[in-house]
Simulated assay, not measured.
Amino acid sequence: MADYQLTATDRIVIRTVDSANIPNDPANRDWQEYERWLADGGVPDPYVPPLDVDPLNMNTTAQILGAGS
Rank of each mutant, 00 (worst) to 15 (best):
D3G: 05
Y4A: 07
Y4W: 01
Y4V: 08
Y4T: 04
Y4F: 10
L6G: 02
L6P: 14
T9L: 02
T9H: 07
T9M: 01
D10P: 06
D10N: 15
D10F: 05
R11L: 14
I12H: 11
I12D: 01
I12A: 07
V13E: 11
V13R: 00
V13G: 07
R15H: 07
R15W: 03
T16V: 06
T16G: 13
V17G: 00
D18Y: 07
S19D: 03
S19W: 12
S19L: 14
A20C: 06
N21P: 10
N21T: 00
N21F: 14
I22E: 05
I22A: 03
I22T: 07
P23Y: 07
P23Q: 08
P23N: 13
P23I: 11
D25Y: 09
D25N: 14
N28S: 13
W31N: 05
W31P: 08
Q32S: 12
Q32G: 04
Q32D: 05
E33Y: 04
Y34M: 08
Y34N: 03
Y34R: 00
E35W: 03
E35F: 11
E35Q: 15
R36N: 11
W37H: 01
W37Q: 09
L38H: 02
L38V: 14
L38R: 02
A39V: 07
G41Q: 06
G41S: 05
G41L: 06
G41T: 04
V43I: 14
V43P: 04
P44E: 01
P44T: 13
P44H: 08
D45W: 03
P46E: 11
P46R: 10
P46G: 10
Y47C: 02
V48E: 05
V48Q: 15
P49R: 10
P50Q: 10
P50E: 12
P50N: 07
P50F: 04
L51S: 11
L51T: 00
D52K: 08
V53A: 05
V53Y: 05
V53W: 04
D54G: 03
P55H: 08
P55D: 06
N57V: 01
M58H: 13
M58F: 04
T60S: 15
T61R: 12
T61I: 13
T61L: 15
T61V: 12
A62V: 00
A62Q: 06
A62T: 08
A62R: 08
A62G: 06
Q63G: 07
Q63S: 12
Q63R: 03
I64W: 03
L65F: 10
L65G: 01
L65A: 08
G66Q: 02
G66F: 09
G66Y: 08
A67Q: 11
A67D: 13
A67L: 14
G68I: 02
G68V: 00
S69G: 09
S69E: 12
